[in-house]
Simulated scan of single mutants.
Amino acid sequence: MEILIVGGGIAGSALALALRAHDLPVRLVEARPEGSDTEGAFLTLAPNGVNALRALGHGDVPAAAGGFELSGLDFHNASGRRIARLSGEDDAARYGARAVVLRRAALRTELARRAREAGVRFDTGARLTGLAEHGDGVRAAFADGTTIDADVVIGADGIWSAVRRHTWPDAPLPTYTGIVDCGGWTKVDLPDSARQQMIFGRRGFFGYAVKDNLAYWFTNVPRATEPARSELDDLDQTRWMSTLRDLYDGDPAPVPRILAATQRAVGVWPLYDLPSPRTWCTERVCLVGDAAHAVSPSTGQGASLAIEDAVVLARCLRDEQAPAAAFTSYQRLRKGRAEKIARFGRQVGERKASSATGSLFRDLTLSLFLRMGARATAEQYGYRVDGSPSGGRRD
């Protein structure tokens, strides 16, 4: 079976590595040129994501990519008072792993490096312009006029997936959430964080964690009008950072201090929600990761779900003779879980709205909301791609 993966991000690179672990032939194409992977600042790989890497046989990836562990979340209001806490000190005992903070590009690069070493061919600068299924396979066409024939094509090309668009042209498009996200890392004299710190500021939402005097930070900034697709690519960084400092002026320490020390953000991106597609697959085309089920960053599950997808789909392609049967099994195993987490992420995201009345209500109810969501968190963290038992209810 000749397998073509479109998209060389975390989902595509993890899938290529998983397929090669079963000696399946795979080729990967990526629209961006070599060395241009700057999308996203950093991410949190949840315990279930770490366990998925272990199931893949590459549990050392987080350490190799420079990650560091955290244990839970603290939430603070605009006065600096802690209003809720999500404990994670017992995650290793309950789930077999703790959450890990990593630079997104470092994680993707490490996965791609290992996939190349396993024999995967990577072609960069290959922008998909057409996809045609026929009786014997799929023909993919690219902007430079070349075509590739494969038995199956797997779209791992993100929320704006070209594979999804060419296969299901009438599928709903991603919808803008009203939030612009950005982040980076800044040298600052602060103690290491035991947990990630989340601050509901007066005009925005800010999160950070510190390791070895390096603050990994992000912010969600409300913006009513949707930015044009390329509008935020070449921002005046001096002006942008000045805007952020003004936005968080007077908010709890050390937020103003982190921003004062920051010269530039790694990137700025509008956040989108993807309506759940009716199906993820045809007989010869399939979607993984954000192309199938983009989830809010509020879940901390995007990369973890993508790696889970990779492990499960590779096993289905190994075990089923017909691609259509493999894709049907994969969708049955993955769709319900991903859509449930996406719904939970929307609920969390709604709590980031800032207003005098809304903030008071949030301060009074967030702790209760997190306790009610504890079972969902345990289900997310305790999932194992090999089906072994892990985790339980978080009381």
Rank of each mutant, 00 (worst) to 15 (best):
S13H: 15
P169H: 12
Y272R: 01
C286K: 00
G9I: 15
K211T: 10
L102P: 11
P33L: 13
L128W: 03
D236L: 05
R346W: 13
D386S: 02
S388K: 10
T146S: 14
R113D: 03
N220Q: 08
A143N: 14
F344W: 14
V101R: 01
V120R: 10
L131Y: 15
P270K: 09
L17S: 05
P47C: 03
A106P: 05
V163I: 00
V210H: 08
P256R: 01
A338W: 02
A63D: 09
N48I: 01
R245M: 02
A306D: 12
Q197F: 03
V255L: 05
R257V: 06
D212L: 07
G250I: 15
V266T: 09
Y383T: 13
F200A: 01
D319H: 11
Q196E: 12
R284H: 06
G302H: 08
R257E: 06
W168K: 01
D123M: 12
T365W: 07
D181G: 11
E89N: 08
V285M: 03
Y216K: 03
A378W: 07
K211V: 04
A112I: 00
D249T: 01
V255A: 01
G119K: 14
R239I: 14
L70P: 03
N213E: 09
A16H: 13
V180Y: 02
T243C: 07
G35T: 06
A14P: 06
F42A: 13
T377V: 13
R98N: 10
A338M: 05
I148D: 03
A310W: 07
E350S: 12
V255R: 08
F218A: 08
G204Q: 03
L86N: 12
D74V: 01
F68Q: 11
L17Q: 09
E117G: 07
V255C: 00
Y248L: 01
R278M: 09
G336K: 13
S276L: 06
I5V: 15
Y248T: 02
D123I: 12
C182A: 12
I258R: 03
R113Q: 09
A92D: 10
V153C: 04
A106L: 13
S388M: 09
L43F: 12
S390F: 10
G96W: 04
A115M: 10
A342R: 11
I10Y: 01
R343P: 02
E30P: 04
T328D: 09
R113C: 04
A55T: 10
A14Q: 05
G391Q: 02
G183C: 06
A324G: 12
L333Q: 15
R362C: 02
L370P: 00
A303E: 11
T146I: 01
A97C: 02
R284M: 05
A65H: 13
G250Y: 01
V266E: 12
P222N: 03
V50C: 02
A65S: 10
I5C: 06
W168E: 02
D212T: 03
V100G: 00
C281F: 00
F327C: 08
S354W: 00
P25G: 08
A55V: 04
A31C: 11
G88I: 13
T38L: 04
P172R: 02
A306W: 01
L28W: 14
G40P: 05
E34Q: 12
A356Q: 07
G130F: 02
A156P: 13
A374I: 04
R32F: 07
G184T: 15
L111P: 14
L15T: 11
S230H: 11
V188I: 15
R393F: 14
R114W: 14
V120A: 10
